[in-house]
């Protein structure tokens, strides 16, 4: 079989697509994130409420992305990066003298949704999510 360079490239491309399609990596990670959140909530329903997640819409570099989370009165807040190879980021527990808010810097493997889930004092859960676009630097880095 004689293949031109172009045909070979096309075949290679097709092979890559086939390999990736059945289990998309991002999809797997999102499922994983759902499981991680379920573990945190004990399977309880997660509602909406007074929780704020502040993140840049566009992160200049995925290595250091500033994040702020706040949920007045929350006992703890979990942060999950749905598109990371390991979506867990952190769980913060707040004592009586702390306001239920935390600022930090995290790693994001690519453009994805980041979710903050707060456990309120009454044991209920609320969440907020933010989509963060992670750009690749101008010169490939």
């Amino acid at each position: 079989m004689n293949l031109s360079r172009r045909q070979t490239l096309a075949l290679g491309g097709a092979a890559v697509t086939v390999t990736l399609l059945p289990i998309s990596f991002a999809q797997a990670a999102t499922d994983d994130a759902a499981a991680i959140i379920a573990e945190f909530t004990g399977g309880a329903a997660v509602g909406e409420g007074d929780i704020e997640l502040t993140a840049p819409e566009i992160a200049e570099n995925g290595n250091t992305v500033p994040m702020k989370m706040a949920a007045p009165g929350a006992a703890s807040i979990m942060l999950v990066a749905t598109g990371n190879p390991t979506p867990r980021v952190m769980v913060a527990h707040f004592g009586a003298s702390a306001e239920s808010r935390l600022s930090t810097r995290i790693r994001l493997a690519g453009t994805q949704d980041v979710i903050a889930v707060a456990k309120l004092a009454d044991g209920s859960f609320i969440q907020s999510s933010k989509s963060v676009k992670v750009t690749i630097g101008g010169c490939g880095g």
């Binding site: 200049e60 290595n63 250091t64 690749i136 630097g137 101008g138 010169c139």
Partner: peptide, 24 residues
């Protein structure tokens, strides 16, 4: 001007050494 998703700078040295988010 944008170079891909980035803004090109003038390449000035006044900020060096620079802490880069890229390599921390």
């Amino acid at each position: 001007v944008m170079i891909r998703a980035d803004h090109l700078s003038q390449g000035q040295l006044n900020g060096f050494p620079a802490y880069r988010l890229k390599n921390a």
